[in-house]
């Protein structure tokens, strides 16, 4: 038996089980990797017939639930660095505002679509390839050797001349110790990286979780489990803002759609968080890297093959 539900704002009727299944799958990934899942769920919702503007807005609303659930779960285990998340958020808000202005300029010149698609492919390609290579290398190596090498690298780095990036990190003012993450850096670093991610997120029209996670791992050198919790906290705040703005200005948030999705996604997020405890960081990184690369390949394919329909609903990128 298939039970259909009418979504009043979207104006379409969809199978409840299909929506629950989508929510569960995306929530699982959210809990596992600390990504919002927006870059996966929105295209899936469009594919099943939800109008794109409603899909994007309602997706933000359900991410509020999934990330609340995830933040609670990770927060109770002490895996959320609220201090770091706060500085990243400040940068994210500034970057997001700048990114929106940049998109306006690009639209006026008629190059917005090209820049958006190119940014997506380049970003996904770089992040996915780098994560995949590094994690695979670590997985192949015995654990003792990894520890030995990393110890050697640290001591070598300390003995020899530190890298230019490290020199720059250390020379910046407002050095602060982030206890949960176990790093001491200038507050300028997370704010600056937050700005960069915010600009990219605005251009790409996503929450930015899948860019923020690699940034925290590789550029801020935070431990993977704290990265997941902190990323979820940051996504929560971002999506609260987006949900309100979409509901207020565009009236595109479908609460019925969001409720069904969140029912699946919150449970999925908990399951994901449980599995993330059992997997080691490199195994998690390999899976995330493969997903990122898969999305990139799908995008490249979409750009090269003649589309079935030349028209699509406008208004969003």
């Amino acid at each position: 038996m298939n039970l259909f539900i009418y979504l009043p704002v979207a104006g379409v009727s969809v199978s409840i089980f299909l929506l629950l299944g989508l929510g569960l799958a995306v929530g699982f990934l959210s809990g596992l990797f600390g990504v919002g899942g927006g870059f996966l769920l929105t295209p899936l919702l469009i594919m099943i017939g939800i109008p794109p503007t409603v899909a994007a807005a309602s997706d933000s609303n359900q991410i509020v639930a999934a990330s609340t659930s995830g933040t609670v779960a990770h927060g109770r285990r002490g895996n959320v660095d609220f201090k770091m998340g706060f500085y990243l958020l400040i940068g994210g808000v500034i970057g997001g505002t700048l990114g929106v202005q940049l998109i306006k300029i690009l639209r006026a010149t008629g190059n917005a679509d090209f820049v958006i698609k190119l940014t997506y492919i380049v970003m996904l390609g770089i992040i996915g390839t780098y994560m995949f290579q590094e994690s695979l290398r670590n997985l192949k190596m015995p654990r003792r050797r990894i520890k030995k090498i990393s110890r050697m690298r640290v001591s070598e780095a300390e003995e020899k001349k530190p890298s230019k990036i490290l020199q720059l990190y250390r020379s910046l003012p407002f050095q602060t110790h982030f206890e949960k993450s176990g790093v001491t850096i200038s507050v300028i670093t997370p704010v600056f990286l937050g700005i960069l991610v915010g600009i990219l997120a605005a251009i790409m029209g996503v929450g930015g979780g899948f860019i923020m996670v690699p940034v925290m791992v590789y550029m801020l050198r935070m431990p993977m489990h704290v990265v997941v919790g902190t990323s979820l906290f940051q996504i929560l705040v971002t999506c609260i803002n987006v949900t309100f703005m979409q509901a207020y200005y565009n009236q595109t948030v479908d609460i019925v759609l969001a409720l069904i999705l969140l029912l699946g996604s919150t449970i999925g997020a908990q399951l994901g968080a449980k599995v993330s405890d059992r997997l080691n960081a490199d195994q998690m990184k390999v899976i995330l890297a493969l997903m990122v690369l898969l999305v990139m390949v799908q995008m490249v394919y979409g750009l090269l093959v003649h589309p079935e329909l030349l028209f699509s609903v406008g208004g969003s990128h």
């Binding site: 509020v64 639930a65 999934a66 659930s69 933040t71 949900t243 609460i255 969140l262």
Partner: peptide, 19 residues
């Protein structure tokens, strides 16, 4: 505005309870 706030509160309560 009411609708937007309601959507956020409902989502947070549901997420929090399940969490």
């Amino acid at each position: 505005a009411t609708y937007g706030i309601l959507a956020i509160i409902v989502a947070m309560i549901a997420g929090g309870i399940i969490g």
